[in-house]
Simulated assay, not measured.
Amino acid sequence: MTIKTAEDLFIHELSDIYSAEKQLTKALPRLARAVTDPELSAAFETHLEETLDQVDRIDQIVERLGIRLKRIKCAAMEGLIEEGKDAIDGIEKGPVRDAALIGGAQKVEHYEIASYGTIAALAKQLGYKAALPLLLETLEEEKATDAKLTRLADSGGNAAAAAA
């Protein structure tokens, strides 16, 4: 896709995060099953529900703005998900794997935070008032998930991994 305008960039970035979210909906159930900490498993399951809502919000943005997303695959999310698979395959189930998956999930959250922040800034500049609240809602959810993962790591995940 040739990007020539801010609107082209907005559509490209929205298409990219749409792909990322769709990939994540397939990866999160696998993560929830791969961990031993029930609170971490529940956090992954909760984030799956949020991710499905986020995909729906992108669909709403597309409808409200009358735009078409591009059929692209988010290579960054693909790589982050592959790292998670490597951790699942390469680390015995237990606290060390849980800690690795918390770290991997936070990488995902940071990518999503950067993406939604960028897209929201573009929406604001382009005057897409119908899209901005939906984007900001998702951005806040991503920040909250990152904070929850930090709490899980701090409240025992990393200590359990260090003791293992």
Rank of each mutant, 00 (worst) to 15 (best):
T51Y: 02
T51G: 04
L52H: 06
L52G: 01
D53N: 13
D53Q: 14
Q54K: 12
Q54M: 15
V55H: 07
V55N: 11
D56K: 14
D56M: 07
D56V: 06
D56R: 15
R57N: 12
R57Q: 10
R57T: 06
R57E: 08
I58P: 10
D59R: 14
D59M: 09
D59W: 07
Q60P: 03
Q60V: 09
I61K: 09
I61V: 15
I61M: 11
V62R: 14
E63W: 07
E63I: 08
L65E: 15
L65Q: 14
L65Y: 06
G66Y: 11
G66Q: 10
I67F: 06
I67G: 05
I67P: 06
I67C: 06
R68C: 00
R68K: 14
L69P: 13
L69E: 11
L69M: 13
R71G: 08
R71L: 12
I72P: 09
I72M: 07
K73E: 14
A75L: 12
A76M: 07
A76K: 07
A76L: 02
A76I: 08
M77L: 13
I81G: 02
I81Q: 05
I81T: 04
E82H: 13
E82Q: 14
E83Y: 00
G84A: 11
G84L: 11
K85C: 00
K85N: 11
K85Y: 10
D86I: 12
D86N: 08
A87R: 01
A87K: 02
A87W: 03
D89E: 15
G90H: 01
G90L: 02
I91C: 01
I91R: 03
I91L: 11
K93A: 12
K93L: 07
G94C: 05
G94D: 06
P95Y: 10
V96H: 04
R97L: 05
A100G: 03
L101K: 04
I102E: 01
I102K: 00
I102C: 01
G103E: 02
G103P: 00
A105Y: 05
Q106E: 13
K107V: 01
K107E: 10
V108Q: 11
V108E: 09
V108Y: 03
V108A: 09
E109L: 05
H110R: 13
Y111N: 13
Y111L: 08
Y111K: 12
E112K: 09
I113N: 06
I113Q: 10
S115C: 04
S115H: 08
S115M: 13
Y116V: 00
Y116W: 03
G117H: 01
G117T: 03
T118W: 00
T118E: 03
I119L: 00
I119N: 02
A120L: 07
A121H: 09
A121N: 14
A121T: 15
L122S: 13
L122D: 08
